[in-house]
Design a binder for these strands. Structure first.
Length: 331
DNA sequence: AAACAGTGCAACCGCTCTGAC
DNA sequence: TGTCAGAGCGGTTGCACTGTT
């Protein structure tokens, strides 16, 4: 508190580290171990302050550091953890092996944060920014269908919506650790739900998610999302054809109305392309064609491949209004 | 081809917090 | 209880790279 910084002395070097400095630091730590940073520079023959040495070691030279681009799974994990932990970069980094808090922070500020803002999502609360939504375009694009709306209403589970609302509010107020615990508790439940999801089976086959080694293309944290649990609930209540249509729309709509865990759907554009061609979704598309214009997963998922992650996220976050939703009734 | 603007990232700064002594 | 070192965080800077004009 009020302590002068360790590196305000003159004569200490700043700026980028040279390979020679890196080598000296690495060799010294290999022999003496990390720690005692105040005396380390002198002992290692470095014209650096201890803090600079510590940062250089922890953020760059540590042997377990993973360099290079963040993978899709890593980015997804960061978003989810940030929604729970906030700007606790070290806590997030602790759950991302090989990544440092500084690296994650930089990546968040330069990539994810901007992307969320472009998508109309508040990067702090992870909630859609309603003030940025273009309601008029949404209303104009919606087609009215009262009978379908009735079908949708039968799908709406009040308890489910209540739970979602609770999560949304609690995510902004509760202790992050408690929320994290809740997410973890939901993990097993969600796995069960995914297995039970019929007839619309959202569980992909191995070759549908070629980018990820897991059958379920989500990192562990991704599965532990209440939103996914909700989607599982929603997807299991429908039985009739019309219901199926509304069901997929509802899933997409629910995704867009829920906070951060919705990112956990884990679909790259590669995967979405495969999904749209899969038999399960094909049947849905066929059925929807019988009734009205195509809406649902195909419209939600089929996007250009310019930026795979952004397009995937932005599509999930689009406030798609199902054809079966009669907006006039809400006006 | 050159100038300029935008972007990404490593590194730093200043501060607070925590735990050991 | 006070001091100190280390850790952590938010914000910022400087530079290299890339895209645009």
């Amino acid at each position: 508190m009020g302590r002068s910084p360790c590196c305000d002395k003159n004569g200490l070097k700043k700026g980028p580290w040279t390979p020679e400095e890196d080598l000296r630091l690495i060799q010294h730590i290999q022999i003496h171990g990390a720690g005692n940073w105040r005396t380390l520079p002198k002992n290692a023959g470095l014209q650096r302050c201890g803090k600079s040495c510590r940062l250089r070691w922890t953020n760059y030279l540590r042997p377990d550091i993973k360099r290079g681009r963040f993978s899709f799974e890593e980015e997804e994990t960061i978003i989810q953890l940030h929604s729970v932990l906030g700007n606790k970069w070290s806590a997030i980094a602790a759950r991302l092996p090989g990544r440092t808090d500084n690296e994650i922070k930089n990546y968040w500020n330069t990539h994810i944060r901007k992307r969320l803002l472009r998508m109309g999502i508040d990067p702090v609360t992870h909630s859609p920014r309603v003030d940025l939504l273009d309601l008029s375009s949404i209303l104009n694009s919606a087609q009215l269908n009262l009978s379908s709306l009735l079908g949708l209403q039968t799908l709406m589970n009040p308890e489910l919506l209540k739970f979602a609302a609770t999560l949304i509010s609690s995510s902004n107020q509760e202790n992050p650790e408690i929320l994290l615990q809740k997410l973890q508790e939901n993990q097993s439940l969600n796995a069960q739900m995914q297995n039970q999801m019929t007839p619309i089976n959202l569980q992909p086959t191995q070759n549908q998610f070629q980018n990820t080694p897991q059958q379920v293309p989500l990192p562990v944290q991704s599965q532990a999302t209440p939103a996914q649990g909700n989607m599982g609930d929603i997807s299991m209540v429908s039985t009739n054809l019309n219901g199926q249509m509304c069901q997929e729309n509802l899933i997409a709509s629910s995704a867009s109305l829920l906070p951060s865990p919705i990112y956990s759907y884990g679909m790259t554009d590669n995967t979405t392309a495969d999904l749209s061609e899969s038999s399960a979704f094909q049947s849905l598309n066929d059925s929807s064609n019988q009734n009205s214009q195509n809406f649902g997963f195909e419209s939600v998922l089929s996007t250009p491949l310019s930026d795979e992650r952004e397009s995937y996220c932005s599509n999930l976050m689009k406030f798609g209004i199902p054809d079966c939703l009669d907006l006039d009734d809400f006006m």
